[in-house]
Amino acid sequence: MASMEKRLQKELQALTKDPPKGVRVSPDGTCRTLSEWIVDLDGAPGTLYEGEHFQLQFKFSSRYPFDSPQVTFIGTNIPLHPHVYSNGHICLSILTEDWSPALSVQSVCLSIISMLSSCTEKKRPPDNSFYVKTCSKNPKKTRWWYHDDSV
């Protein structure tokens, strides 16, 4: 537990002090507990999401960084993307089976930005309505099938 808090504290400091472009730890995320963060993301210039703003919620278990964080889009603007469900769940392999403790909040944010940036057509995943009706609240309980990582 203590090692998880220490690492999150370091990540929070680094991300607040020197965030990559388009990523900000949200001030209204009220990090009262270190185990839940809100991060603001900007759609990258020159992509389909230019000018849009998104919010990501991170939830960390006491086993972080050995367990991946639970990451979902929240708020009113959920990006319209073939790997993002309308309930905010994200189909991205590093969030489940390809997670590694060498990854961080920052690298997850950058992966998500790059996933958005490489999108060529704004649309929901084909099984969106079924998924949203039947899925668990926790996206990590979904056993995703990653068909095409290049999208």
Binding site: P82, T96, D127, S136, K140, T142, W145, H147, D148
Partner: peptide, 18 residues
């Protein structure tokens, strides 16, 4: 492209990825 098919699961299979 973009087929995020899924089956529900409760276990963290990464732990057993050996």
């Amino acid at each position: 492209m973009g087929n995020c098919l899924k089956t529900p699961t409760t276990d963290d299979i990464s732990l057993l990825r050996g």
